[in-house]
Amino acid sequence: MIVNNLLITLKDKDAESIRKTQEVLLSMKGKIETLIDIQTEINIRPSKTAYDLILITKFESLEALDIYLAHPVHLEVAKYIVSVLDTQASVCYEI
């Protein structure tokens, strides 16, 4: 199984912006066949170096991850994320 984590820092850090971003990310649930599981969590310990959100997605294989990345639903969500994004980091690993 492949787990892909995306850490996100938003330009606007108010609670409403963070919550909306979480909702947009979760809107992919059940819409992309290769996406086994999706979870987003909001950071509860803000600091200058902390990220605002984490997106955790799970896939059967790297090929399934690639299908997800090219899926129209993901591409639409990615457009929104790019518009609100300040910085990001990712870690992808196999379990």
Rank of each mutant, 00 (worst) to 15 (best):
L75F: 05
D66N: 13
E16G: 03
T21P: 02
S47K: 12
L55M: 14
L75S: 00
V24Q: 08
R45S: 10
A50K: 11
F59Q: 07
I54M: 14
A70I: 00
I81R: 00
Q39K: 11
D66E: 15
L85E: 09
N4F: 14
K48R: 06
N43Y: 11
M28A: 10
L6Y: 14
G30I: 05
E60C: 03
I81T: 02
V84D: 01
A50D: 12
E33G: 02
I67Q: 14
Q39A: 04
S27I: 03
V73H: 04
I56C: 13
A64Q: 08
K79Y: 00
L69W: 00
I81H: 01
A15M: 11
I67P: 07
I32F: 06
Q39H: 09
G30F: 09
L55F: 14
P46E: 09
Y51Q: 10
H71Q: 05
N43V: 02
K31R: 14
T21V: 08
V3R: 10
I2R: 11
E60Y: 10
I18A: 08
L55V: 12
S83W: 00
E63I: 04
I32G: 04
K13S: 12
C92T: 15
Y51M: 13
I42A: 09
I18K: 15
L62W: 13
K48Q: 11
